[in-house]
């Protein structure tokens, strides 16, 4: 495994093309008769090869924005473009196709299949894309090697440490070779060393494979790995949105 724990060079990916672009994005949630605004007029680009951190207090709208970027939630209004294609207003069926084609997800609680081995967890992501047989085997092996867990292929999540589980989740996210990785608090459940390892892996993905990586985090330890920090407060981007 390559050294992936060094901080990022400043602004390493300023010249990438936008993979995801949002303009004037709003999101409102209705609770009974009450409408709660979660995002208000957000403008943001995510480019290939960059690691962008979403930071802000709890309830500021970070995760909501991440969900909309990943086509999991639909915006109330505004534009959401995935590689130039307008995705706002698309039905769930088409959003699912976009998610499968362009995104890899990493979750705070890993969300691995308890009953499957590490290798099988990765295989599921490939199976969804119709990649099976020897090609799937090769990709699983490569993904596990990339995260340094080639020897844990047959182990189930319950037999892995938190850091190892998150690395399996990263391997699952990258096995399908998505252009964009969206990670929700990927280091929240990890100790310092494992946290650095996981973020290093994500940064390596951005640098070496030209992926766009968006990380929602409260963890100040990983600031040094980011190309850009997007600050969000009360549903608005206060810093680091669209470069002027």
């Amino acid at each position: 495994m390559a050294d992936m724990t060094s901080p990022a060079p400043a602004a390493s990916a300023q010249n990438g093309h936008p993979l995801v672009s949002v303009r004037g994005l709003t999101k409102e949630f209705r609770t009974g008769h009450v409408t709660v605004p979660a995002l208000c007029g957000v403008d943001l680009d995510v480019r290939a090869g960059e690691v962008a951190l979403f930071m802000g207090p709890s309830g500021s709208g970070k995760t909501t924005l991440l969900s909309i970027l990943g086509c999991i939630l639909s915006p109330t209004s505004g534009s959401l473009r995935i590689k130039g294609r307008e995705a706002a207003g698309l039905p769930e069926k088409e959003l699912a196709v976009l998610r499968l084609a362009h995104f890899g997800f990493i979750f705070q609680n890993y969300n691995l299949f308890r009953t499957l081995t590490a290798a099988e967890n990765i295989q599921v992501a490939l199976d969804l894309k119709g990649i099976r047989g020897q090609e799937a085997q090769d990709r699983v092996t490569a993904a596990l090697e990339a995260v340094g867990l080639a020897d844990k292929a047959r182990m189930r999540p319950e037999d892995l440490s938190g850091g190892q589980k998150q690395r399996v989740a990263i391997a699952r996210a990258l096995a399908g070779e998505p252009e964009i990785i969206l990670a929700d608090e990927p280091t929240a459940a990890l100790d310092s060393e494992n946290g650095r390892l996981v973020i290093g892996l994500l940064r390596q993905l951005a640098l070496e494979r030209g992926r766009g990586v968006v990380i929602v985090t409260h963890d100040p330890r990983i600031l040094e790995f980011a190309d850009r920090t997007v600050s969000i407060e009360d549903g608005r981007i206060t810093q680091g949105g669209v470069p002027a």
Binding site: A96, R99, N111, V124, L128
Partner: peptide, 18 residues
Amino acid sequence: DHLPEFGTLRAMGAKNGY
């Protein structure tokens, strides 16, 4: 019991048929 896993599949883009 496995609802989070089904949710994960949905998030990853699995069709209902899957």
